[in-house]
Design a protein around this nucleic acid. Structure first.
Lengths: 214, 214
DNA sequence: TACCTAGTTTATCAGATGATAAATAAAACC
DNA sequence: GGTTTTATTTATCATCTGATAAACTAGGTA
């Protein structure tokens, strides 16, 4: 069987610069998500079936590659429709939050995303803090305002840190489902939707009950 | 100024083996919590003001040192009083959970703990999974049983994954406060107690309201 | 004071790791 | 087919990094 792959010198396929760069970036996301950013360029190259120096043709430094990974993971992650959904008072807040979290989870509760996100956070990456601020301003603050209306409150003051923290418990609790799944590799029920809608509903109803104290 | 520290040879203090080992372990926890476990032994030694090979007198390998850090962080972290508090039906479940989480947060929501915990989880450490199982069996399952009683349910079946996931949203949501503080370094209100008791109360009341559907 | 024990340092190794330069060869062009 | 272009590889460097061995010395003991 002289035609077996293992017998023949690898045919060394060539890709266009654009395609190769794309493939490297894709694999780098998977690789760093798994190993963290101290993962080695040689192992990444080996997974790609290319030589290690080839990486440096497309990304001048490892840090440069990592920053491209960040960009891919952090950018365009806030869907403008989310805000529309949240603010749409023609539907119940319960419905809106359930739809929002279904879509949000679909976009972000993924193996690569969750892990790259947590690794970069632990590294103290600026991009991570910017993302947190974005979430707080563009998603959680609007939710707080809807929650006030839901509870029949008519405050005019800006949303307080305490209010934000309250909604962060829900937001983080749902995110924690993804952490348990992709970081702890613990047992989680397959049906996130059900878990999520129970949590959203319980939190809303419970918050309304105690809203006098908030 | 010939007496300045920088001019004089370091006086080279000697510690007993026991004390030195203790100091190394303490600093290693801080160091790895900050830098992750790919932090380098030379930098750790430098922080301790000792030479790098001295580490190897007390810990034969870096991995050995890391495992001692794990042990320090993971062991004796489950206080038996917590279970007592949770099960004590002479108090309202609300009170019990608030007391439990106050104590639990005090024990675990610390910079070193949270970060070592997350780093080790990302590394896929066995010890992490064991800890998660312990939490689920010894703390969350009992809470689920109390929650059934609180909601007036009289089931006999074992606690389902869906029930666990529901309480995980609260548990994870509160834990997420510590993640935001120590990993994201984002803004959080100083008063965790207030945030926590609101969340606990809202979740309990809300869950009771929707308990027919669970 | 001289000696000994053991905590600590200096010097160094071997392999790992990010990065570079030159050689090679597949595909495109004329 | 011969030439050019450029994707890719081989060989290699400099530094980093975990680890080891031998030399050194502070402090206790006879």
């Amino acid at each position: 069987m002289s035609t077996k792959e293992s017998d023949v010198k690898a045919p060394r396929k060539r890709l266009s610069a654009e395609n190769r760069e794309q493939k490297i970036l894709e694999e780098a996301i998977k690789f760093f998500a798994e190993k963290g950013f101290s993962g080695q360029t040689r192992e990444l190259a080996s997974r790609l079936g290319i030589s290690q120096p080839l990486l440096y043709r497309y990304f001048p430094t490892k840090r440069d590659l990592i920053e491209n990974v960040f960009e891919e993971v952090y950018m365009n992650r806030v869907n403008p429709e989310w805000l529309t959904t949240i603010k749409n008072r023609e539907r119940s807040l319960e419905d809106r939050l359930i739809e929002f979290y279904r879509s949000y989870a679909e976009a972000t509760y993924r193996y690569e995303w969750i892990r790259v996100y947590m690794f970069s956070a632990l590294m103290g990456e600026e991009l991570n803090r910017r993302y947190i601020n974005l979430v707080e301003k563009e998603l959680l603050t609007p939710i707080c305002l809807e929650l006030r209306a839901y509870c029949g409150l008519t405050r005019d003051e800006p949303v307080s840190q305490a209010e934000l923290d309250h909604i962060w418990v829900l937001h983080g609790g749902l995110f924690y489902y993804a952490i348990r799944k992709h970081i702890y590799h613990g047992p989680v029920s397959e049906d996130f939707s059900t878990v999520m809608s129970s949590a959203v509903t319980a939190m809303l109803r419970g918050t309304k009950v105690i809203s006098g104290k908030l």
